[in-house]
Amino acid sequence: MSFLLQVINGLQVGSIYALVALGYNMVYGIVQLINFAHGDIIMVGAYGAYVVLVLCGLPVWVAVLASIALCVIAGVGIEKVAYSRLRNHNAPRISLLITAIGVSIFLQNLFQLIFGSAGIPFPSMFQVAPINLGGLNISFVTILTIVVTVLLMIALQLLVGKTKIGKAMRAVSEDADAAKLMGINTNSTVAFTFGLGSGLAAVGSVLYSNAYPMITPFMGSMLGLKAFVAAVLGGIGSIPGAMLGGFIMGIVESLTKGYISTQLADAVVFGILIVVLLVKPSGLLGRNATEKV
């Protein structure tokens, strides 16, 4: 029974990884940038929800919407201020990477300045009794997290696969220059991708803060790192891949913590990543890119 419980816990954490991983996944797919600031978007979303919920005393749904709006604005804003100039000047990709790291340090320290470095307890948003499923007591937040994640994945898959903007996203990630020649506004497509990823991260941050009710300015860095690992594990450029990667990461982490050692959980997670990359460099569900000479 406790094994099943660990798996369900893993699915919960994994869902959050998956939501955040999608942001990394889409942004990497479209501009080949490991957006290190994405992890800190989660932190921004959590603080946003906290301010609206506790300091302003507004209802839960307002807090969730405000958090999403704040993250979308932050994500698009970061793209416009910090990345677009470098992208349009064809700067070396590593400069873009360092800029992303700079933005990450900036966000962490800005929020530390505003809210202090101590953790702030996050209020429980959903006061619903645990649900009994076949003798297992599962908290409402756990079920909500998993269901919301699966629904968002399906919606996203439809958005990318069936709509016009989705087609534009796929086109830009395939070949940005050719897409531009076909009349696609690459800049607004990239901005949309950043916004979409940040919005998903906001949902992830609200769910995460409910599961682990303590928010700090640095909460995003390790969470973001693991989510990125999940994205690579599942395969960059694949939405089901991000979900699969997130779930695997979450379950492995939860089982290692439960049965082997809390300390070694991170080592096991990264070990799996290394093995997967060595066997299948494009990730579990990623496309195989052939190298042209």
């Binding site: 910090a82 400069s95 700079g102």
Partner: peptide, 22 residues
């Protein structure tokens, strides 16, 4: 004091924006 790391990151970002090759 508290503004130290904020300034550091801003300097870093501006440097990279205007001199991407270092």
């Amino acid at each position: 004091a508290d503004y130290r790391m904020v300034l550091y990151s801003v300097v870093l970002i501006i440097m990279m924006l205007f001199k991407p090759s270092g």
